[in-house]
Design a protein around this nucleic acid. Sequence first.
RNA 1: GCCAGCAUAGCUCAGUUGGUCAGAGCAGCUGAUUUGUAAUCAGCAGGCCGUGGGUUCGAAUCCCUCUGCUGGCUCCA
Length: 646
Amino acid sequence: MINITLPDNSVKQYNDGITALKIAYDISEGLARNVLAAKVNGEVWDATRPINNDISLQLLTWNDNDGKAAMWHSSAHLMAEAIEILYPGVKFGIGPDIENGFYYDIDFLDYDISEKDLEKIERKMQELAREKQEFVRREVSKAEALRFFSNKGDEYKIELISELEDGEISLYQSGGFTDLCRGPHIPNTGVIKAIKLTKVAGAYWRGDESRKQLTRIYGITFPKKKELDEYLILLDEAKKRDHRLLGKELDLFAFSNKVGLGLPLWLPKGAELRERLEQFLKTVQKDAGYKPVISPHIGNVNLYKISGHYQKYGEESFKPISTPVAGEEFFLKPMNCPHHCEIYNARPHSYKELPIRYAEFGTVYRYEQSGELHGLTRVRGFTQDDAHIFCTPDQLKQEFNNVIDIIERIFTALDFKDVIIQISLRDSNNKDKYIGCDENWQKSEAAIIEVAEERKLNAIVEFGEAAFYGPKMDFIVKDAIGRKWQLGTIQVDYNLPERFDLTYIGADNGKHRPVMIHRAPFGSMERFVAVLIEHCGGNFPLWLTPDQVIILPISEKYNDYGKNVLNSLGKNGIRGIIDTRSEKTGRKIRDAELKKIPFMFIVGEKEESDGTVAVRKHGEGDLGTFGIQEISDIINSEVEKLMNLK
RNA sequence: GCCAGCAUAGCUCAGUUGGUCAGAGCAGCUGAUUUGUAAUCAGCAGGCCGUGGGUUCGAAUCCCUCUGCUGGCUCCA
């Protein structure tokens, strides 16, 4: 007999060789039907794998991420089985589960595969799933595994096996398909009820551009048809929020082939919105002791050789610009920091001046591969809300804290409520990857961790993800429909001060090296605006939105009164427009709703004689009649509250 | 850059197997209407069917080139 400890700490006794699935049946048949896998002493196992020792057991279902993973991984096998039947002879690469579903990389040889073929494969999968094929695990020797796949002619699997240790190799068989796989898998394919293959893409074998490109097919499966439908609705919602569509609809930005790929053009409404964002941050930064600086868009190639960007961005930069004088070359700047270092170096500094905080909305240029470009989120020219703080090592922690204050204030003002913080530290087993002495690393890592602990930040720590010059803290926001976006970043840097020989004179009258903090709360204006658009679906916060109010006169008779109202609003600092077309009120309301303007003021005979407006709020409807000063005050106090500026 | 798909009016899209196939709605302009909480009516204008080549008696439609757009290109059995 063995003891099985369940999550509620109850202990049950079973015979050797019992399986998680049988235990589930013992608890209830309903549960058993939902079991996808099991966690045995913290390790994810097949629910059908025999248990021979005392263990703690957690049954995994669709509600557990590990359960989902097992389901999707098994779905990848199911897809491979279907494909092997439909396209005999194809060769398989890898087929893992991913965050939202699974994929399989396959060498389709001479078959042409496009999205038209997906439906056929889906149907085959459904047919196979209904057979409730069981996944059978078999542990094999390396020689046996190699023999199996050489007989099959699957050179990719052979390559994978050759890198594995003998004794740790397992095969899984479901129906007529056998795959090299460590598992775990779901008990049988019967739980896969809803299948959607989503896209076909090329993917290099093992991500290596020099190797053969395989065909990757992505898909996702669900235990219930309803969940697939919900997923498709979510995708649809994401589509509606796409910043590229909304940017066009709301006249915010555009691209032109004549100007060039990945080079955004900001239209007046977009530029005004961006200016408001910049102005907001400038005000916050002024309060926090930042000083504006301005640096040119190009710099001598030697500047970037000193900073190390030349080595790093050489390939990803636009080609150097040559001058008529031989031997002189300039780069479009890929980052602002080298310039700011030289601004610091413009004159000597005393410890009494530190910290020095230089801020610049600096436009940088990087040559991204054409296929990487995407709306405003991935472009070739963009503006960072950059700042560099030069401080003494002792001031580091305080300065780091101050930057977090700024970032939190901004996220609050923009209604990003769900923020994940990632602290990226050095991989201490692999110190060669980084520069700088241990002491500095320990100090700066400790500073970040202490700050995170003191502020009780909801932070995850990643080892080995630090920049080569120092640890960093990244801010990842979740938008309104749950997608994650990396925005702000704070980085500690001991490298550039050294490379640029930055110094200050200390109280001891000696030269000392300052520490540098790189930080960008928005990251880049382009990317941030894109994320903001998708987050709010084009319904910007009141303080940011292009037009806060639209005046809708009932008929042309009231246009003059409407213009007077607009004037009064302007005097109260409220942005508005007026719709003087000779359209019916219903039409004007509809158009204003579609333009997502927060407030509609409807004015007619009553309002004109009373000096009032009938207020309708976007998405909510009629709010009733207000005096002009009264509603102006309401709007302004709302704006003030959102901006949190006082 | 590579793989797959797409490209028709400012926008969203129709255009069956090549032969009145250059169309619709919205937006725009002109006029009528003077309107009370999500589309008033009528008329007008608007396109080298992404570019260049080819096949054909004939191409928006078939083939090739180029350009651009979209989705991907390790989340490592």
